[in-house]
Design a protein around this nucleic acid. Structure first.
Length: 484
DNA sequence: CAGAATGAAAC
DNA sequence: GTTTCATTCTG
């Protein structure tokens, strides 16, 4: 009877929709079937303090859930909701996150930004032992049952088309994925609170945020041709695509290869290099994030222009930087053939990193109504199996024992993660805060006429990425600057 | 109010 | 397959 439930009027429900999803009732119940199993929870007691049942069937040892009194629930996501809005039952991760935040495993000293925290918690979640995650899935299941008991008429009714004009303007951060990973790693190892403070403080001493540059997939004359013909109707009909994400636990696409996701053709507009003011006008986000470029200790010969500074000499064309690289260092790395492949030029202190994700941008990437971040291609670049094999329903549906799949060590996961589209805020994201010289090369790259370049080097990928990387390496003189 | 994460559920 | 929305809080 889902149809019936759907028809039911949510607004009939009483005003006690102010809920806080904690695990307080969860552990007191057992979920062995879909029927009533929570005798102590009724629609009335749903918000009541936790029953004093100690017999927790299972509790995370690593991150025990917080059972203190819930803080009054803030209206979800700060969005205005109807007075009697009934929130969705939380999923396992949301429960985990909630509890995690509340227990302050990561103190304010380490991280305050919740976007970053989400990242950290996400990484932690991925690295959580299977059993631990299972516990949270169990809690989620119980929460769902509770929810059903309390709101038997509830049906999730997402407002489709609501976010049609929504676009991911720009990614916050991700300042430092490595740092997030480190924190997550330590967390899974049991370090939290003050221990973590100390460990991260030490880590921060030696760690510098990595440089990440994103370029779209290599442009060839062929693709250019193809695009030109398709461009018009494409841009007329295509709408923004939603954000998909990296492989998830229950998703079978986790194991799919990136080659199965053809890239959308780049747009004609993309090929031309508009004047900076036009660029800013066309796109709602800047090409580069150079917020604190000036913080970096500059040497006299270092460029100090911001790309988005009006003073930046965009007319200074130096396409030869790329060619010079090829002449000097030989052929570039083999061209990626699938969207989402990434060049990753060594990352540690000995050779500072430059990751280039070559995901294509949607056709209208330079127009207002699209989001590079929301292309599927930018989220399918996992060329290793997902570390996440956990099937929350493994107990209900007996599947090919995925649960016995190997648990990927963090390091490996990180690589997978780093090659994904998590720097997907724009086509070329360069954190030059710590590597200003890289900016120089990128600037030159962008100053060049790509049209000319493509015409002259047809069927060859643009290699600005490599140029930038080497440029920076050269600048660093091969001297280790940071240790990780 | 977007953003960050993952996952459930609806289109 | 895609989109929304659960949590949380800051910028």
């Amino acid at each position: 009877m889902p149809a019936d439930r759907r028809r039911s009027n949510l607004n009939d429900l009483s005003d006690d929709a102010q809920m806080m999803w904690t695990n307080q009732n969860v552990d007191a119940m057992s979920v062995n079937n879909g029927i009533a199993f929570a005798p102590n929870v009724t629609p009335i007691t749903f918000n009541d303090p936790p029953p004093l049942v100690d017999a927790t069937p299972c509790e995370s040892s690593l991150f025990p859930s917080v059972n203190e009194c819930p803080a009054p629930r803030r209206s979800g996501h700060g969005k205005r909701k109807p007075e009697n809005h009934i929130p969705r039952p939380p999923n396992a991760f949301i429960l985990f996150r909630s509890s995690f935040i509340k227990s302050q495993h990561v103190s304010n000293k380490v991280e305050t930004n919740h976007s970053t925290l989400s990242k950290i918690i996400g990484l932690t979640w991925q690295n959580l032992p299977l059993e631990e995650r299972q516990i949270w899935h169990h809690k989620a299941k119980v929460a769902l049952s509770e929810h059903k008991l309390k709101f038997p008429d509830y049906a999730f009714r997402p407002l489709h088309g609501k976010g049609k004009d929504k676009r991911k303007v720009r990614e916050v951060g991700p300042k430092d994925l490595k740092r997030c990973e480190k924190i997550a790693e330590l967390l899974v190892l049991g370090k939290k609170g003050e221990d973590l403070d100390v460990a991260i403080k030490e880590f921060d001493k030696h760690h510098a945020p990595e440089v990440v540059t994103r370029f779209e997939a290599p442009i060839t004359a062929q693709t250019f041709e193809k695009v030109s013909s398709n461009e018009r109707k494409d841009s007329l009909t295509k709408k923004t695509r939603g954000t998909s994400r990296k492989p998830s636990a229950s998703s079978s696409e986790a194991l799919s290869t990136p080659s199965s996701s053809p890239s959308p053709p780049p747009s004609l507009l993309y090929f031309s290099t508009p004047p900076p003011e036009q660029m800013r006008g066309l796109r709602s986000e800047p090409c580069f994030d150079m917020v604190s470029f000036g913080q970096y200790p500059c040497t006299p010969d270092m460029p100090t222009n911001h790309l988005d500074s009006p003073n930046y000499p965009f007319d200074r064309v130096d396409a030869q930087a790329t060619l010079a690289y090829q002449q000097h260092y030989g052929p570039a790395p083999s061209a990626p053939t699938t969207a989402g492949e990434a060049y990753t030029i060594s990352t540690d202190c000995h050779s500072p990193q430059l990751s280039i994700d070559t995901s294509l941008i949607p056709t209208d990437a330079w127009t207002r109504d699209s989001s590079p971040a929301s292309t599927a291609s930018s989220h399918t670049s996992y060329d290793t199996p997902s570390p996440n094999f956990y099937d929350p329903y493994i107990d209900t549906f007996s599947t090919q024992s995925q649960s016995h799949a190997p648990h990927y060590p963090l390091q490996e996961q990180s690589q997978v993660y780093a090659q994904g589209a998590h720097y997907s805020g724009c086509d070329a994201y360069v954190d030059t805060v710590h590597q200003p010289h890289a900016q120089s090369a990128v600037s030159e790259y962008f100053g060049a006429s790509l049209e000319t370049y493509v015409a002259e080097h047809e069927a060859k990928p643009l290699l600005a990425s490599s140029t930038v990387g080497l440029d920076y390496q050269t600048y660093m003189g091969g001297v280790p600057q940071y240790s990780l």
